[in-house]
């Protein structure tokens, strides 16, 4: 479903974020990427929908090679790939429904979206996406009036409204408290299991990763240092990824008890 072939990214200024990375993700998999901040996790995820262009190698999503697409085809690809962000990236000043409808932008004629004339069908799809994350009663509330956990659920609904085949989540729980983190992870898991969406998540907390992932990919300095089932991750693997032993900062539950 997603295939990285010798992918590398060098940012202007010479910082190499990804180095000759090759990775294969199958359809329907729930993959969690773990690693220190600065290991290249965010870059990795953003190359899948072309928000960050590759400097070398290639990324394929399904049958499409991201780097070869022209602008409108790239937009069509992005419409098939939902994305969830650490800071939710909602428009605070507008309603939850309008935020979710942003997920439909590529599916309606441009002029109609400019005028804000959403058809009954589009609104229905947005409502359903909100129902998946069980927050439909807030549809006409301003996003600013929601709690962090609720905002992230709206973020998930926006991605689901795209009816994507791939879901990307960039540190989706890093700004949330532990119970809310679990709620959000459960919704992502449900989207993967019930809707069959291939899901790629960046996480900082190892215990969360182990709990929800089918497969864990460890990233260190832009290269894959571990790739295997969640059950195979132990203390030694951890040291390989993080370059040090496990501390309380690396697990969610420990942080909760602080």
């Amino acid at each position: 479903m997603i295939r990285f072939t010798h992918a590398s990214v060098t940012y202007p200024g010479g910082v190499a974020a990804l180095k000759d990375l090759s990775l294969d993700i199958a359809e329907g998999e729930f993959v969690v990427v773990v690693g220190l901040s600065g290991a290249g996790k965010s870059t990795l995820i953003r190359t899948v929908n072309g928000l960050v262009p590759l400097s070398g190698g290639s990324v394929e999503v399904g049958s499409r090679t991201v780097g070869d697409l022209n602008r409108s085809r790239l937009r069509a690809l992005r419409a098939d790939v939902g994305m969830i962000f650490q800071h939710y990236n909602l428009v605070n000043r507008t309603t939850v429904l309008n935020n979710v409808l942003m997920g439909r932008l590529n599916r309606v004629p441009g002029w109609r979206s400019m005028l804000g004339w959403w058809g009954r069908d589009e609104v229905e799809r947005a409502m359903r996406a909100l129902e998946v994350v069980e927050i439909v009663e807030k549809a006409y509330v301003r996003a600013a009036n929601l709690s962090g956990g609720q905002q992230q659920r709206v973020g998930i609904a926006r991605a689901l409204a795209q009816e994507p085949t791939v879901l990307l989540a960039d540190e989706p729980v890093a700004s949330l408290d532990p119970p809310t983190s679990h709620t959000v992870m459960r919704y992502l898991h449900r989207a993967n299991r019930e809707l069959g969406i291939t899901t790629l998540v960046n996480l900082h907390f190892l215990d969360l990763a182990r709990q929800y992932a089918d497969r864990i990919v460890g990233l260190r300095a832009g290269a894959v240092v571990f790739d295997g089932p969640a059950s195979a991750v132990d203390e030694k693997v951890f040291e390989r990824i993080y370059g040090r032993s496990l501390t309380a900062d690396d697990v969610l539950e420990a942080e909760a008890s602080l």
Partner: peptide, 26 residues
Amino acid sequence: DHGPVEAARAGGASHPQMLRYAVLPQ
């Protein structure tokens, strides 16, 4: 806030659509 701008781009919005949905409401 540039967050919604990134979200609109990641969702496949065109430049005018991004302005209309991520910038204008703000």
